[in-house]
């Protein structure tokens, strides 16, 4: 049985797709057979970040509607052996995702995969509900600012009431907080909420803190999951998060502002 992990947030632009790409790549790199599904029908992005946009033939909706088999639609990642991508349709509407159709595909994937990562669209509408419905675990991606925190709270409420686990009265969906775009300098200046603020408000366990970084943007533009940039702080932070997701105990990093050294102070202007 695969574990089904939804990457969700409520708010748009907080880093769900970046996170889905990196978490799924991280899981696969550790030898787990992993598939990442793009639920953002109509606004597909995951294939760009995974650098497989030129290899999309069939998509999620084609499979749901029986126009293609799963094997035809799954794209094998070129960098990590055990990683597969199920892209979203760019031309259909979100309503094409039916509960029964999604269930059928997830069940089929469950037979062969260890992890199914569902990249949720923003919002709390049908597409987002479908992405989280079958989840066992949820990674709630949050930026350190009030509107993102509010939306995360909303999506947590929905996970507790509208997921399959909630409807069936099973154990609740396991919730993880992933704080992205974290900038310790701005936190110190009081321009951003701190990790503690967000943890205090949302009251769910912290999976990781991803520092705000140019590397994330560059990697996304090149179609590279940032976790593969293993020299960068963001890449390492994602690696930590994957380790924690798998039960490893790792200390949180990148949460405090770097003390400016002599050289950086000297060359401040450059």
């Amino acid at each position: 049985m695969a574990r089904i992990i939804v990457v969700t947030s409520g708010k748009g632009g907080v880093g769900k797709t970046t996170t889905s790409a990196s978490i799924s790549t991280g899981l696969a790199k550790r030898g787990h057979k992993t598939v990442v599904i793009d639920f953002d029908v109509g606004l597909r992005n995951l294939d760009l970040i995974m650098n497989c946009e030129r290899r999309v033939v069939y998509d999620f909706v084609n499979v749901i509607q029986g126009e293609a088999s799963l094997n035809q639609a799954l794209i094998k990642d070129k960098r990590v052996e055990t990683l597969f991508i199920l892209p979203a349709s760019q031309t259909r509407e979100k309503e094409a995702l039916t509960k029964e159709g999604v269930e059928k595909i997830i069940n089929e994937l469950s037979e062969t995969f260890d992890y199914i990562v569902c990249d949720s669209p923003a919002g709390i509408e049908h597409g987002a509900l479908m992405a989280l419905y079958y989840a066992d675990e949820a990674i709630v991606v949050t930026n350190p600012e009030v509107s993102s925190v509010r939306d995360s709270d909303r999506i947590l409420g929905i996970l507790q009431s509208k997921s399959r686990r909630a409807e069936m009265g099973q154990d609740p969906v396991k919730e993880h907080l992933l704080l992205t775009r974290y900038n310790p300098d701005r936190v110190e200046r009081g321009e951003m909420l701190s990790v503690n603020d967000v943890e205090e408000i949302l009251a769910i366990p912290l999976l990781g803190v991803i520092p705000e970084s140019q590397v994330v943007l560059n990697a996304s533009n090149q179609g590279l999951p940032v976790i593969l940039e293993d020299q960068s702080d963001a890449g390492q932070a994602y690696d930590d998060a994957v380790a924690r997701l798998l039960g490893e105990d790792r200390e949180h990093r990148f949460m405090t502002a770097q003390k400016k050294g002599f050289f950086s102070r000297m060359f401040k202007g450059s």
Binding site: D153, L156, G157, S161
Partner: peptide, 27 residues
């Protein structure tokens, strides 16, 4: 016993309501 999250509503049509968790903004 559970956090009342944004968008959720808890209603005690008679008697008192006791919440042993936060009531979030928007709830």
């Amino acid at each position: 016993n559970q956090t009342v999250r944004s968008g959720q509503q808890v209603y005690a049509p008679e008697g008192d309501l006791i919440i042993l968790a936060p009531v979030q903004a928007g709830a």
